[in-house]
Design a protein around this nucleic acid. Structure first.
Lengths: 336, 336
DNA sequence: TGAAAAGATGAAAACGTTTTACTTTTTCAA
DNA sequence: TTGAAAAAGTAAAACGTTTTCATCTTTTCA
């Protein structure tokens, strides 16, 4: 790969001039500029981003970091795609990291990203309190939280209104006459699930339904497995639920599998509302009623926020709260 | 962030010595080493990977590039996860790029990756002939092709036996008595789809079934849309097919949606075999019969190949061909 | 006419490492 | 006691940029 030096030699100017031509900064004589540009073309010069990054202090690295729990969760791949797309629009590349909700991995990647001097980092923080992330913010690295919040309010954040998402789902089932509504959710570690559960409880309360602890299942949101097992349990109950609310797309899959295995008809025997409108949701039979959260859009917004902060580090942090929507298909119906 | 210089000062040695302690290379006096290590701990020193990369020539950057068509295609997210996992095991981070099958984007990202001096690049090449990729290989950048081949044989490659995958799927349906079997595939641009189609034809031929051009639909494999439309068409045919083979997971979804919309019963009215064993395949009703390709494993193998090449650039290129498997569930049955 | 301003360019320092080439100190055989 | 070899350490160059500062021309205009 040719370097600045070689281009300079070829164009018979100093490397300073070549650099100037590239960065448009100071004026350089049109003739010289033309000559240099031809040299760059003819040598097929590509600036070395590593050297650029080493030299320039902040906000020029054209690289950003994205840490997500697991790319195999389609909700996160939507976010990733959103991030990628706006990054590409600004000639940025993104380093993608999977944390598996493991604080050590998160820590490791955070170190790596900082050491790569990325211009900024986007992540759903694993813990609502996080010394590491807070430290990062304090040390001036632009950070945007997406999907999950930090307790500290002074961070750019893009989340959805999870309470409302939970409420919408449950209200919809109540309107169909359901009273025994189960929820598959996660342990309270993650703000998003906690909030969805709160929405569930609010909806019940508003309709004078006493929550039944037996219908609240807190499992592992990272796989279909625990939802599958819980659903099996639920269906074996003396008074089984007539409706199930699964609070993410993996858990929805687990619930679906268990329900089908028990040869239950959806929605005649049991109604189901899922979270996340994945491509398969409309393709299956019956098409699935879901709470849709705009993952792709969240990724885009988060990245825009990040770029804004890179440009103006002093800007007041903002919190963007997006609205989930209920998409009614055929997996929910009148209670029999 | 503290630098080598500061550590050196703190430990009262030269920066060379600190560097030596880190890289284990030359011997340094145990006492000094201990002192330096304590200094690094106390200052919480993290080496600057950008500076490291600029200085060291090849194979030390701890960064690799991965270009895929689209992260929202779950098959590719499996690959990505496989790559990530083995990369993480070696303290590598990965830059992820989505090409959208667009040669210009591919080109752009290839330039970026080279300019970031990544240690190597993994990708399913968009074109079987690709000057850009070939140029890269020639210039000594380790490259591994995954999922799709290059015509040039001298590249490390990890693919599955697509011909066999196609054959397996179609043979399975023929065994159930189907004669009119449709295939949803892609234009012949991509080696993988071309091969799956070849497998389809082979199977028909082996069983003395004349291929019917009306049943061969070549569309866009990047979305569910075109498969949906084609399936609608197929079902309206005077002699509609009794079975459909969809050659990737997105197309499977499109087919499924169309079939359900026409209120056809699977497998009583129509049998379906999908490609890719996605998490939803077993959760839907009826559970889907599929050809499974080990995406995660392919990602792993590709990355291992890449690391081997980084360590030994002279190693002869190898081609790993993995075997697809037929997973029989309930979406296929006797022709009525 | 000539001093100041503007315009065009270049030399060299800096970013944080690794590596080369060199110097100092220690060891130990003769 | 000497001195050659081994061990331990350092100074400085290099990687490819950007940026600061300096220099040299040319233009402007009182």
């Amino acid at each position: 790969m040719p370097t600045l030096k070689e281009v300079a030699k070829y164009a018979k100017v100093s490397i300073t001039t070549v650099s100037r031509v590239m960065n448009e900064a100071d004026k350089v004589n049109p003739e010289t500029r033309e000559r240099v540009q031809r040299a760059m073309r003819e040598l097929d010069y590509q600036p070395n981003r590593v050297a650029q990054r080493l030299r320039t202090s902040k906000g020029q690295s054209k690289l950003l970091g994205l840490i997500i729990p697991d790319i195999q969760n389609q909700f996160y791949s939507s976010i990733v795609r959103g991030v990628e797309d706006v990054a590409y629009g600004k000639d940025y590349a993104v380093i993608l990291c999977n944390s598996d909700e493991n604080p050590n991995k998160e820590r490791f990647y955070l170190d790596v990203l900082q050491s790569e001097s990325v211009d900024g980092i986007i992540l759903p923080p694993i813990h609502q309190y996080s010394k590491v992330v807070e430290g990062l913010i304090e040390s001036g690295v632009p950070v945007v939280c997406v999907d999950r919040k930090l307790v500290r309010e002074a961070v750019d954040t893009v989340v959805i209104n999870n309470v409302r998402g939970g409420y919408l789902a449950v209200k919809h089932m109540i309107d169909f006459g359901h009273r025994r509504i189960a929820i598959l959710t996660s342990s309270s570690q993650f703000s998003s699930f906690e909030e969805r559960l709160a929405g569930y409880k609010n909806a019940l309360q508003d309709h004078n339904i006493e929550p039944d602890e037996n219908l609240i299942k807190e499992g592992d949101p990272r796989s279909t497995e625990s939802a599958y097992l819980f659903t099996k349990e639920l269906l074996k109950l003396h008074h089984p639920p007539t409706a199930i609310f699964a609070t993410n797309n993996l858990m929805t899959l687990g619930a679906l599998e268990a329900v089908h295995e028990e040869k239950l008809n959806v929605p005649d025997n049991i109604s189901i509302v899922g979270f996340d409108d994945m491509p398969w949701a409309r393709a299956i039979s019956p098409p699935l009623t879901v709470i849709k959260q705009p993952g792709y859009e969240m990724g885009r917004r988060a990245t825009e926020l990040l770029f804004q902060r890179v440009e103006d580090p002093k800007r007041e942090p903002v919190q963007i709260i997006m609205e989930p929507t209920l998409i009614i298909r055929k997996s929910t119906g009148e209670v029999k």
